[in-house]
Amino acid sequence: LQLFIKTLTGKTSTVEMEPSDTIENLKAKIQDKEGIPPDQQRLIFAGKQLEDGRTLSDYNIQKESTLHLVL
């Protein structure tokens, strides 16, 4: 599924993920695209901070969801 990652600067990146992927996997993919180390990334979806060990489906993240990346 395609996700949009929006940064505080207003920049939006697109990443392709599976519902079974963990937040950790997602942060690794963001690191590949943006060069931001996972330990500096905080991802927010629906007002919640996402935890590394959980999966996208745990948070009911659907295709074309927008996640907010806070550093």
Score class of each variant (00 low, 15 high):
residue 41 Q to C: 05
residue 55 T to I: 08
residue 21 D to I: 03
residue 70 V to W: 11
residue 43 L to N: 00
residue 22 T to Q: 04
residue 27 K to G: 00
residue 13 S to N: 08
residue 39 D to N: 12
residue 51 E to K: 08
residue 17 M to S: 05
residue 27 K to W: 03
residue 26 L to A: 01
residue 57 S to H: 09
residue 39 D to G: 12
residue 46 A to P: 01
residue 38 P to T: 14
residue 38 P to F: 12
residue 46 A to G: 12
residue 32 D to S: 12
residue 26 L to T: 02
residue 53 G to R: 09
residue 45 F to N: 02
residue 24 E to Y: 12
residue 21 D to F: 04
residue 68 H to C: 11
residue 38 P to R: 14
residue 66 T to Y: 07
residue 11 K to D: 09
residue 67 L to E: 01
residue 55 T to D: 03
residue 16 E to Y: 15
residue 24 E to T: 08
residue 7 T to R: 12
residue 10 G to Q: 04
residue 37 P to S: 07
residue 4 F to R: 10
residue 67 L to N: 01
residue 18 E to M: 14
residue 70 V to C: 07
residue 60 N to E: 07
residue 33 K to Y: 09
residue 37 P to L: 06
residue 31 Q to C: 09
residue 60 N to C: 04
residue 43 L to T: 00
residue 56 L to P: 02
residue 33 K to N: 09
residue 18 E to D: 12
residue 42 R to N: 11
residue 38 P to H: 11
residue 1 L to S: 04
residue 21 D to C: 04
residue 23 I to H: 01
residue 64 E to M: 12
residue 44 I to L: 11
residue 16 E to S: 11
residue 59 Y to F: 04
residue 53 G to N: 12
residue 52 D to N: 11
residue 14 T to Y: 11
residue 48 K to R: 11
residue 7 T to H: 14
residue 34 E to M: 15
residue 1 L to D: 03
residue 68 H to I: 15
residue 2 Q to D: 05
residue 28 A to Q: 13
residue 63 K to R: 11
residue 57 S to C: 04
residue 51 E to F: 06
residue 1 L to R: 03
residue 42 R to Y: 11
residue 16 E to T: 13
residue 21 D to Y: 04
residue 34 E to P: 02
residue 13 S to E: 07
residue 3 L to F: 09
residue 13 S to Q: 11
residue 70 V to G: 05
residue 65 S to F: 06
residue 60 N to D: 09
residue 28 A to L: 14
residue 51 E to T: 06
residue 20 S to I: 05
residue 68 H to A: 06
residue 56 L to T: 01
residue 56 L to E: 00
residue 50 L to A: 02
residue 8 L to F: 11
residue 51 E to W: 05
residue 28 A to M: 12
residue 18 E to T: 10
residue 21 D to P: 00
residue 53 G to A: 12
residue 42 R to E: 08
residue 24 E to R: 14
residue 21 D to E: 08
residue 31 Q to M: 13
residue 69 L to P: 00
residue 42 R to T: 14
residue 10 G to D: 04
residue 29 K to F: 06
residue 71 L to A: 08
residue 11 K to G: 10
residue 63 K to I: 06
residue 32 D to Q: 13
residue 41 Q to S: 04
residue 71 L to S: 09
residue 54 R to P: 04
residue 43 L to W: 06
residue 64 E to V: 06
residue 50 L to V: 04
residue 64 E to C: 11
residue 48 K to H: 12
residue 36 I to K: 03
residue 66 T to G: 03
residue 36 I to F: 11
residue 51 E to G: 04
residue 14 T to F: 11
residue 17 M to D: 00
residue 64 E to R: 11
residue 43 L to A: 00
residue 48 K to V: 15
residue 52 D to I: 06
residue 44 I to C: 10
residue 66 T to E: 07
residue 42 R to C: 12
residue 42 R to M: 13
residue 65 S to V: 08
residue 58 D to F: 14
residue 50 L to N: 00
residue 60 N to S: 09
residue 67 L to P: 02
residue 7 T to N: 09
residue 11 K to Q: 10
residue 12 T to S: 08
residue 58 D to I: 02
residue 61 I to P: 02
residue 39 D to C: 10
residue 70 V to M: 12
residue 43 L to V: 05
residue 23 I to A: 01
residue 38 P to E: 07
residue 41 Q to E: 01
residue 21 D to L: 03
residue 68 H to K: 06
residue 23 I to K: 01
residue 47 G to A: 03
residue 31 Q to E: 10
residue 35 G to V: 02
residue 3 L to Q: 02
residue 53 G to Q: 10
residue 15 V to Q: 03
residue 62 Q to P: 12
residue 27 K to P: 01
residue 2 Q to V: 15
residue 23 I to G: 01
residue 63 K to V: 07
residue 17 M to E: 00
residue 66 T to K: 05
residue 27 K to C: 01
residue 14 T to P: 05
residue 65 S to M: 08
residue 46 A to F: 09
residue 30 I to C: 00
residue 17 M to W: 08
residue 29 K to W: 10
residue 63 K to M: 13
residue 42 R to D: 06
residue 33 K to M: 15
residue 44 I to T: 08
residue 29 K to E: 04
residue 58 D to C: 02
residue 35 G to S: 05
residue 31 Q to D: 04
residue 47 G to K: 04
residue 33 K to V: 12
residue 29 K to G: 02
residue 15 V to T: 03
residue 8 L to V: 13
residue 49 Q to L: 15
residue 60 N to F: 08
residue 39 D to V: 10
residue 9 T to E: 13
residue 35 G to D: 05
residue 26 L to M: 04
residue 71 L to E: 08
residue 6 K to N: 05
residue 54 R to E: 04
residue 37 P to Q: 06
residue 11 K to S: 10
residue 2 Q to K: 15
